[in-house]
Each structure stands twice: as C-alpha cells, then as structure tokens.
Amino acid sequence: MRWLEVRRHSLTKKGPARGRGSALSADGVRLARAVGERIGPFEYVLASTVGRAVETALAMGFACDDTAEMPSGYLPGVVPHHDQWRWPTPYSRYAALLAESAELRSVAARHRALWTDAVRAVPDGAAALVISHGGAIEPALVHCLPGADHAAWGGPLRPCEGARLAFDGNGFTAVAWCRTDPPRYGG
C-alpha cells in the first residue's frame, strides 16, 4: 500500500501586498510550518506551478521534486469561484456536477492522473505529497472515490487542509481527512 496526501496551499496575501514578494502571507507561512511539523515524511512532492503552492511546500519543510500545471475546478457556468462554500454538502454537490459536466470530469481526471503518477513514484509503504488548490482538490477527491459517502465528508478544504488517500497499486481505495486544528491563522 502507498499513500498520497493532497493539501490545499496556505493563506495568501490580500489587498495591496498581493503580487509583491512572497505569495503567502506571514500567517500563511506560520500555518504551513505548523502543519509541516505534523506530517510526512514524503518520498515525492509535487506542487502546482502557481507560486503559492510551491511556497506552501517549502514552508512546510518539503522540497518540491516537480511542479505541474493543475487546472482549476472553477468553471464558468458550472462552478463559480468559491461557490463550494455556499453548498451544505459540497462533495455530494460535486458528485452531481461531475455526472453532469464533461468539463468538470476532465479537470478531475487530470488531477487524478497527476495524483496517480505521484503516488506511483514512491515505493510500497511510502507516501507522496501534492500541494494544489481549493476548488480543484474537492471534485478530484470525489472522482477518485465515486462510491464513497460524500455527504459525510464535511466542508470544503481550508488553507493547508487536505486528504490522505490509500493507493493499492490500481487506484485509490480510502480517504482520511487532514483538517487544521483551531485556532487558524488569519482569514
């Protein structure tokens, strides 16, 4: 058995500071450090090419082995930006949207392919880490485990939250949630 941990990037700068220097806020660096102290080790680390994902991995204490373009799950006419925060059962809603939208299925399938390649890059008994984005991880999780009880999965992923997936060599078989412990840093 191998494991894949998928995490959303940490807190980013807002307002006039956004786009200057680091993409992460000071609170985001502190949150990523705190989470990084509790997770791992990882034999392979993949991050989105977007700076905040690479910076999150580094702030957690993990060097990136590779980066990849990771498509957004926010799609015009399908899932507006941050819409999942308004849904009472976001993973059930994603399951319904995946059944309806070939475009969203394509995004989720791309993430599943990246995740599968990452976890196959580690030996049996080891784990890989992927740092990605909210709104993309959630539908990909549903796509990886279509028969799961999505209504029981809770809310969408906050900064540095994610899931640990079991991989049996053929596919993903189980999920454990990696939620941050209050208090959270920043907003």
Rank of each mutant, 00 (worst) to 15 (best):
A96T: 10
S106T: 12
A151D: 15
P159R: 01
V79C: 09
L104H: 01
L157T: 00
A102S: 12
H143L: 09
P88Q: 04
A113D: 11
V142M: 12
F167Y: 13
H143D: 05
T116Q: 12
V119H: 08
D117S: 01
S106F: 07
G77W: 00
S132H: 08
A148K: 10
P71F: 01
F167P: 10
Y94K: 00
P139T: 08
G155Y: 02
V78H: 00
L129P: 07
P88S: 07
P71G: 12
V119N: 10
A126P: 04
V130C: 14
E138T: 07
W153L: 05
A102L: 11
F167I: 14
G134P: 04
G169V: 11
A99V: 15
S132T: 07
G154I: 00
Y94T: 09
C160L: 06
G171M: 01
S92A: 15
A166N: 03
Q84S: 10
C160R: 01
D149N: 14
S92Y: 13
L104E: 06
A151L: 08
R112K: 14
G135Y: 06
L157P: 04
V79S: 04
V122H: 05
L165Y: 10
H81P: 06
E138P: 05
V119R: 12
P123W: 00
P71D: 13
L129K: 03
H81R: 11
H150S: 12
A99E: 15
W87A: 02
L145K: 12
N170D: 15
V79L: 08
E161T: 00
L114Y: 02
A163E: 13
T116V: 06
R158F: 08
P80L: 09
L157S: 05
V130H: 02
D168W: 07
H81M: 10
G135K: 02
T116S: 12
H143R: 02
L75A: 02
A108W: 10
C160M: 07
R158S: 08
S72V: 06
G169K: 10
L145V: 12
R105V: 13
Q84V: 11
P146E: 04
D117F: 00
A109S: 11
A136I: 10
A99S: 14
A95K: 14
V78S: 07
A163W: 13
I131F: 00
V78I: 13
L104G: 08
H133R: 06
S106C: 14
A109T: 06
R112Y: 05
P139M: 01
Y94A: 08
E103V: 10
P139W: 12
S92V: 13
L75Q: 01
L141P: 04
W87G: 03
D124C: 03
P139G: 04
A152S: 15
V119G: 09
G135Q: 08
R112Q: 14
V122T: 01
S106G: 15
T116R: 14
E100A: 07
H143A: 11
A118C: 03
V78W: 08
A96V: 11
S101K: 03
S101V: 08
N170S: 15
A151F: 06
A166C: 08
D168A: 06
L157F: 13
G162V: 11
A126L: 06
P88E: 07
S132K: 03
W85V: 12
L157K: 10
P90G: 13
A96D: 15
G73Y: 05
H150Y: 11
A128G: 04
R93A: 14
L75V: 02
A166D: 07
G135T: 09
